[in-house]
């Protein structure tokens, strides 16, 4: 009976191959196992499932029904809240990121002059960015910019009567931008580390040639720092797209007044966990992924025109 014997041989052959594979690679996969399981169960699997759910009307209670691209069509053509949240989020990103980076860079340059007390200053400027994302700080912010809050008390000493900043549609988003700029500490530390990498002999040579301090900044510091600026800009932009807690606390979860603080993530949360429109929210999530990916790709493409790599 040749067939089973052949199958047996093939089976043994396969087992032997596996044994050889395992003896060469087994240890690696053993160590990798927790991450690998996590990746399959918590990342890859869910990502695929949410792509599928985004094409259904899933509402958590009943099995999902296929609706094709209806969710996406509605989002792009008939969803005023989506448009509002997009506007708010882009406004937030466009203003908070450059302001935050400008502060971070200005303070880092000031600290990099070999100034006395550097560790103390650095610690003070870093503290808000460490505390920043907690609910307590959002609570504090709500109070600072309330009608009878600290900011208005301060303005009152100059005889100015300020509005209730957090409940005014024109100003509410600005209080969140200020909160984000207040946390410029970690990009500042990254800038400081980058400034240290610039060789001092470049400045010495420039001084001997009679270049002024401001010229040195524009012609030496800034170009050599562009890789760090690029890195900070990409990281901070992605983080800003994902901001959630302050808007949630300051608006009491509504994104108000008049959707003026309706961050994209807040809208997604409302759809998914407020209205249980999980299929719809999955579509929103995938749109966010595409936006972040597109933005990142654009930054990398643009980087070859302005980021200076010294090699």
């Amino acid at each position: 009976m040749p067939a089973p014997a052949a199958a047996g041989a093939a089976g043994a052959e396969r087992a032997g191959r596996f044994a050889r594979f395992w003896s060469a690679n087994g240890a690696g996969y053993m160590f990798l196992a927790p991450w690998l399981i996590g990746f399959m169960v918590l990342t890859a699997g869910p990502a695929l499932i949410s792509l599928y759910l985004s094409l259904t009307d899933f509402d958590l209670l009943r099995p999902p029904n296929w609706v094709g691209t209806a969710n996406y069509e509605r989002i792009f053509t008939a969803d005023a809240k989506f448009m509002a949240s997009m506007r708010v989020t882009l406004f937030f990103v466009i203003f908070s990121v450059p302001l935050k980076l400008a502060f971070a860079l200005a303070v880092a340059v000031a600290l990099n002059r070999g100034i006395r007390g550097l560790p103390l200053y650095r610690a003070i400027f870093y503290l808000p960015s460490l505390l920043g994302t907690s609910v307590a700080i959002a609570v504090l912010w709500r109070q600072l910019f309330a009608r009878d809050g600290l900011v208005n008390s301060f303005l009152a000493t100059f005889g100015i009567e300020g509005p209730s900043w957090i409940s005014h549609p024109d100003y509410a988003l600005w209080t969140l931008i200020i909160l984000s700029v207040w946390q410029f500490g970690s990009p500042m530390i990254i800038f400081l580390a980058g400034l240290r990498q610039i060789p001092t002999d470049m400045y010495e040579a420039a001084s001997l040639d009679g270049a002024s301090k401001s010229r040195q900044f524009w012609k030496i510091t800034l170009p050599l720092l562009t890789p760090v600026i690029f890195f900070n800009a990409v990281v901070q932009t992605i983080e800003s797209f994902k901001a959630f807690t302050p808007a949630f606390i300051i608006s009491g979860g509504t994104g108000g007044p008049v959707n003026s603080t309706l961050f994209y993530t807040l809208y997604l949360y409302q759809e998914a966990f407020g209205f249980l429109r999980m299929g719809y929210a999955s579509a929103l999530a995938w749109i966010l992924v595409v936006i972040i990916a597109a933005f990142t790709a654009l930054s990398f493409l643009s980087s070859r025109y302005w980021v200076h790599y010294d090699d």
Partner: peptide
């Protein structure tokens, strides 16, 4: 690079 929102609902 992946924002957690995209895995959020299936994880839930």
């Amino acid at each position: 690079m992946i924002p957690y929102h995209v895995t959020l609902i299936p994880q839930y």
